[in-house]
Design a protein around this nucleic acid. Structure first.
Lengths: 177, 177
DNA sequence: CGGCAGTGGTTACAATTGAAACCAATCTTA
DNA sequence: TAAGATTGGTTTCAATTGTAACCACTGCCG
């Protein structure tokens, strides 16, 4: 597994050149220290584990579960409202909703005031599932957070906010440079 | 931002109610505070921004770029070695490699000692691209990290390690419960 | 009213991803 | 050295996801 035999610790002095021309060569990128990469690996590990748990027990995908999580707290939302709350896109919401309806986890009713809108709610069954799944989710959260100290938990919270804001900037203002 | 109003700090003491019936209702889950969700949103934002940058400038996908990043530091790896280094799976590596070869970014040569293995390396062109893309990646990294203090950067580093280890446990020991 | 821009939501299609089957070479062991 | 197990890597097929086009309805403006 962890055979780091080839890990050349030090900044690769490929040739041991004294020649300044060599200065053009950029430092190597250490992928395992590269934040975007680490975030991606971490997020995938966590999401996959949880997705397995949800699907094994409730036959729910993550997008579907997210929709339920929001509807559990905020009844009578439309799909557009969900888009706003979840940072998922239209299509993902639409698909999740249609699965949930097929499973009778949520109900859909027309909004008489605006007949384009559809008002969504957890069904009896859906609330049932919701109430069993929330503790499960919290258990995962607690287990993750349990590996951190109280200080670290607070730090993480504010760090994530900052990184999120910066990444959001990228999307808005266009990319760097 | 940091509104912890509903954070019931203590381990949910489900009892303590005057009306036991009511005890059945779980606390709502606040998706926007749920770590797996936040990680996923953050990671996606970051990855998408960077993927755009790479593909716009070098016609590279993220998996392909990762392969190049590793080969830039460690020449003469096989696909299996790459699997180990990148936490990507066989198939993803195989696909990335075949794209990179088509683009003449890497070369593939048979390993005479073991004719199943193929030894991979950056081509001239590939190293060229590598040397231009590394600074770009570092720029993104710096920009992200720039939103944090030096302390926070260190904290983040160790927090990620801890979370990663915990999530890894899940995968190994099987899920919680 | 009549048209036309904007919104809510779904459908259709292409690209990406994942899982399992697969081929070929090597290693093991009898 | 032959048979089965293992390893390196690719292919195939299904599921997931993203993008763009689309339909139905509303709201606005002449």
């Amino acid at each position: 597994m962890t055979n780091d035999t080839t890990n050349s610790e030090t900044h690769s002095e490929t040739g041991a050149f004294s020649d300044p021309i060599d200065a053009v060569r950029p430092d190597d990128l250490r992928l395992e220290k590269f934040l975007p990469y680490r975030l991606s690996v971490l997020s995938n590990r966590v999401s996959n584990a949880i997705a397995d748990a949800y699907s094994a027990r409730f036959d729910l995908t993550i997008p579907a579960w997210r929709v339920m999580a929001i509807l559990g707290r905020f009844p009578n939302l439309s799909a557009a409202d969900l888009v706003e709350q979840t940072a998922m896109d239209k299509v993902a919401i639409s698909r999740a909703v249609s699965i949930l309806i097929k499973n009778d986890y949520i109900t859909r009713s027309e909004d008489l005031a605006d007949r384009r809108r559809q008002v969504l709610n957890l069904s009896e069954l859906g609330r049932d599932v919701y109430e069993r799944i929330v503790p499960l989710a919290q258990q995962y959260e607690n287990d993750l957070m349990g590996s951190l100290s109280a200080d670290e938990r607070n730090q993480l919270d504010s760090i994530i906010e900052k990184l999120m804001a910066r990444a959001q900037d990228w999307a808005n203002r266009g990319l760097i440079d």
